[in-house]
Design a protein around this nucleic acid. Sequence first.
DNA 1: CAGTGGTCTAGACCACGAT
DNA 2: TCGTGGTCTAGACCACTGA
Lengths: 265, 265
Amino acid sequence: MAAEPWAVDPSSDRPIYKQIADALRQRLDAGEYGAGDKLPSESELMQQFGASRATVRKAFDVLMGEGRVESRRGVGIFVRIPPSALFVLRDTDRLKRKTWGANKHSSRRRPFERDAEESGARFRQEIRQLMEVPAPANVARHLAVNEGDPVFVRRRRISLDGRPAHLGDSYLPLDIAVGALRERDTGPGGTYARIEDAGHRLSHFDEQLTFRMPTSTERRALRLGPGVPVVDLVRIAHTRTRPLECFVAVMAGDRYRFAYEIPAD
Amino acid sequence: MAAEPWAVDPSSDRPIYKQIADALRQRLDAGEYGAGDKLPSESELMQQFGASRATVRKAFDVLMGEGRVESRRGVGIFVRIPPSALFVLRDTDRLKRKTWGANKHSSRRRPFERDAEESGARFRQEIRQLMEVPAPANVARHLAVNEGDPVFVRRRRISLDGRPAHLGDSYLPLDIAVGALRERDTGPGGTYARIEDAGHRLSHFDEQLTFRMPTSTERRALRLGPGVPVVDLVRIAHTRTRPLECFVAVMAGDRYRFAYEIPAD
DNA sequence: CAGTGGTCTAGACCACGAT
DNA sequence: TCGTGGTCTAGACCACTGA
């Protein structure tokens, strides 16, 4: 059992740990191991490949960095189970007045709440902070205020089906942050509904997405597995004349799918 | 020089390599090292923290996995320089008929070509494959054909300023893939312009984004640094009555920013 | 209890870049 | 040539899981 067809070639330029990772990846791709299956233990692989433990572990590190496997201490290393549901965020729904607006045809839900329920997930919002802060540089630019000027921020953590899904901070200019917008519960329709209650009329949203690996803090807060990226979302809510809100979120990359419908004209 | 304030605590529950990573991360956040700066060498850190080389290296591995530092063999470890430009892809422009259309007000550019030039980048398209293939499951579903039915695929690699930025595959039903759509150069306006030349009228695009770490193959093809995720983009071009194209791309997560403008109504 | 993965050490040889 | 990071080994102790 020592010299399988996929045995490593010590004379190759390619490092042994990468060869082992390649071999394992190939077995994964071939469906030899399915989602949730246990891979051979480190000691088994040491024998199979005739490598030291550190080398075998390094091969596993590669696959973990790719988000393909994950380890359970005292048990083994397993093929990663993709999140049971990928929550689809649709621009054609979640940001429309018919979702959050105050009129009688609206479902009066928050943008994320709507998409969550549409996917059959339990939506939970947990307020982390509710306070005035000096505007950070990027927020200031988007809200057309000076950096350091006081703005009101609502920091929350959203969970879907009991698992954290994103950290979302909503920044409001002080003249907008009044009444329910400073309370824990903003009520039906959420922030956007309250903004319109105050007589403003939202015209459109600018949404931008960028991508990176999480910091260790974010990894903890979102309970991210190894090899899972995050999406930085920045969304500005506009009236025809001015920006009224800057929403900044760090979202678990393995829990969301973004969907946009774009007219050709 | 052995017992700095940020020295590690061997009695702590937190592993030494994570404490070292924390200390380094803190120095990075504090701006002690700027983009492109060289960090202390492994042997220096071994002395500073009184740890073995393997432990110091593991700390660096953590930061590399976060995409914050990168190593140059024979030289040192450096603070990662973010890509000089983040190319902004705007739904309000790139997918509009005024960009790619055949009328005389159109700029007659490909969607990505437009955004690249707008950012002042050199756009280069390299055809990797041009052939009929059996439709993969996801493509078949989107194009409303049966899995395995022949479709025509245009596989290309797009580079911006000489660096690869994404791998994009355009799948076309056979009745659509005629004339210039089977040639290397589809001409001004690209695929969408040729589709409309044939008498079809595109109404809208459905675009979906998901996120993950690259495979080792993709890492090579896109020349991705460690700790850089990719975006899977799937875009379906529709007429009012049927889907005409399925575009599937793997995009370097550190080179693109996606921007969408969403009306409130 | 035995087996698993998690951490850490000490030492070795190598390829590479700068000088 | 020297210092850098890249790979690899052999061995150790630990914490955890499951039988």
